[in-house]
């Protein structure tokens, strides 16, 4: 029984691997399905240069920086807006309908418009750096990419924050007021900590979506690096092994980020499970 419960989660991956080996041998075409050891070789040498685009690791890092910047922007706007919308009914009424108009638009659908707005301008354009090592770094962060990632992460964080603030128990607010809390203390010391478990969940989902928007963001013109670009570029060179290795990397990084958030949720917010009425 013990062995069974240990082996059960491994069953599906093992089947997939067996399928892959069998299919690759039968298809015998690297472009359609490369042999698994070829992909594993790439993953096992993450610092080796691939298709003269730099290593797997460096491309993942470039992507991470982009996602984290766009995501940080979404967090910085969605959380304060969500807190205010959740607390003041009037603000909610004023913005909710408007924001809901844009919610169903997939981030990818923004691409043409965003290209028209931002073109290939980047942080380098903004800061005026035009040469040197810094130019290479800054020019890698295009506004259009940041915008796509921002749009992807914004709504889950906003919705979760509004919901979190709205479900704060009214007795907690009354208690704080009776104890002498001013309005800014109510926000900082009661509403935000009380809504934090919901906000963190929204942030976790938002980061997941931001990461998923990456490939579409990196397919934009002007992109010359990043794991999303690497995949599309490898595809044009018929290097399917790199495509798959890149996909696996995206999956692993995404799962890792999700795990970190879940740990935080579990450790920091154990109080919320039993105390809400």
């Amino acid at each position: 029984m013990k062995f069974f419960s240990f082996a059960l989660p491994l069953l599906a991956p093992v089947l997939l691997v067996l399928c892959w080996i069998w299919m690759a041998a039968r298809v015998h075409n690297q472009v359609i399905l490369p042999p698994m050891d070829q992909v594993l070789y790439i993953l096992a040498h993450p610092f080796e240069d691939l298709i003269s685009m730099g290593s797997l690791t460096s491309n993942v890092l470039v992507s991470l920086v982009r996602v984290l910047l766009g995501y940080a922007l979404a967090v910085a706007i969605a959380i304060p807006l969500g807190v205010v919308m959740g607390y003041y009914g009037m603000v909610f009424k004023a913005f909710n309908g408007f924001l809901n108009l844009f919610r169903p638009i997939p981030p990818l659908a923004w691409v043409p418009l965003v290209m028209a707005w931002f073109g290939i301008s980047s942080l380098a354009t903004m800061t005026g750096v035009e040469t040197g090592q810094w130019y290479v770094y800054l020019n890698n962060i295009k506004f259009s990419m940041l915008f796509i990632i921002f749009v992807g992460a914004f709504y889950p964080i906003l919705t979760a924050t509004i919901h979190g603030v709205r479900s704060v128990n009214a007795t907690l607010l009354d208690s704080a007021r009776v104890l002498g809390a001013g309005q800014s203390q109510i926000f900082r010391k009661i509403l935000i900590p009380a809504a934090m478990p919901a906000i963190i969940t929204g942030m976790r989902i938002g980061l997941g979506i931001a990461w998923m928007c990456l490939v579409s963001a990196e397919m934009l013109p002007g992109s010359l690096s990043g794991i999303g670009y690497m995949i599309t570029h490898a595809f044009t060179l018929a290097s399917t092994d790199i495509v798959i290795a890149g996909m696996i990397s995206i999956g692993c990084v995404g799962a890792l980020m999700d795990m970190v958030f879940r740990r935080v949720e579990k450790q920091k917010f154990s109080w919320q499970r039993q105390t809400t009425p």
Binding site: L172, S175, R177, V178, L179, P193, A194, W271, T275, T276
Partner: peptide
Amino acid sequence: KPGADIGLVFQEYSLFPW
């Protein structure tokens, strides 16, 4: 408005759970 001179104890769920 509420002030520190007057305290109020509620029936339940009034402690800050965090």
